[in-house]
Design a protein around this nucleic acid. Structure first.
Lengths: 213, 213
DNA sequence: CGGCACCTACCTACTGATAGGTAGTCCACT
DNA sequence: AGTGGACTACCTATCAGTAGGTAGGTGCCG
């Protein structure tokens, strides 16, 4: 993502120039802020300041905060769908796909570009979220569980993974461990914790390769 | 906990009468509300309405919201320390202690009395929390990791657990899985998900008992 | 024993700031 | 000429927090 800095005409402060049109910028900014503090942890005023526009201009693009946050979650789901499609094209090996998924988060957490899954933060406060947002968040987890289930089943079929129970169960175990690892990494402020937890997670599933490799 | 209902003299509404003095009630109420929606998900006004007192009366007990939430987290840590001490007295078997820990959460999630660990919700929004609260939350995770490490080491020593790596690593894996299981249970609105994830988690650690039992 | 000092626990009334949101205007570009 | 995208100005509600006061209890001193 291209990040630039410039000064607004009305206040001397840093304003982030993301690529794309304003609506896309706002979604991106909201995503980043939600990752830091959840739904109630940011305001339209925060976004307005961030991009050097006025608060009502945000309402022009997203009439209500719920609209904006739903857009953020749905954009995330759409991107994941794209990524999955690209993943399946680039590598038919289930273990590689799984590695790419965890590797993506490892990098994001390490460079702090996305220190937590957006849906994970929102899931923590699910009971207090507006229905539309809650539905979108639950949808994300359903998507992810389905994909993981498919990948684990494929890996078993390809002989590169060995599961102790069903792909359904193992997918939930895996998902829980990954999100828990994000939480632990955040709680200990240590990205390496995420990597090490995920590593032992994968080593438990992976079928040892023949020694000659 | 004794829960009673009565009408306030000034407004016809349901008011929760928790046991103990007002300060204790407030801590308990804040704990419940935080579990639902995090730090920014509740207000002094919510608590005031809940217990039929005025907002400034809460400031009398807890000058600032930070004070209140720190008290909530620290009370939680203190209770856990008590529970751990009681646990070690009641059963010297590490596997029983671990079972009691997960069983506690299983019950809480199932009956919705505590559908999520307080510190877990706060950890999700850690970067945006006031320092004092963040410190207390990190402290909780440090406490828990230490206890788990000790229990796992003890279990290995007692021959009832078998770890694939070090107690330190396995404690973090276990902790991540438990918190991830809470998140998954919340995301799918299904307490059974927590139980099943934890079950396979424990079965991986447990040394199979002799068949005669 | 009376009376005063001090305390806890609450109250009313209020503050400045901020929340999300609305109405109406302006302007540049097609 | 219409439209999208921004603006100014404003709204009401709520936020955390403050000022100042009251009722009732406790303890101490004379």
């Amino acid at each position: 993502m291209a990040i630039g800095l410039y000064l607004t005409y009305q206040e001397v402060g840093l304003v982030i120039a993301a690529q794309g049109n304003t609506a896309e910028k706002l979604v991106d900014g909201a995503r980043q802020l939600i990752m830091l503090g959840g739904y109630n942890g940011f305001s339209y005023a925060d976004l307005a300041q961030r991009y050097g526009i006025r608060k009502p201009s945000i309402h022009h693009h997203f009439p209500s905060k719920v609209d904006l946050v739903v857009a953020v979650v749905e954009q995330g789901r759409a991107r994941i769908r794209e990524q999955i499609a690209a993943l399946e094209d680039s590598s038919p090996a289930a273990m590689d796909q799984l590695r790419m998924y965890t590797g993506y988060w490892e990098r994001c957490i390490k460079d702090q570009s996305a220190p937590f899954c957006l849906a994970g933060v929102l899931a923590a406060e699910l009971p207090s979220l507006p229905d539309q947002i809650a539905t979108a968040v639950r949808g994300h987890f359903a998507d992810l569980a389905e994909w993981l289930r498919n990948v684990l089943a494929l890996g078993t079929h390809q002989g590169t993974m060995r599961l102790e129970t069903s792909p359904e169960m193992e997918a939930e175990n895996f998902m829980a461990a990954v999100y828990g690892a994000m939480l632990v990494a955040r709680a200990f402020d240590d990205p390496d914790r995420f990597a090490s937890i995920v590593e032992s997670l994968i080593s438990r599933i992976r079928v040892a390769e023949p020694q000659g490799r």
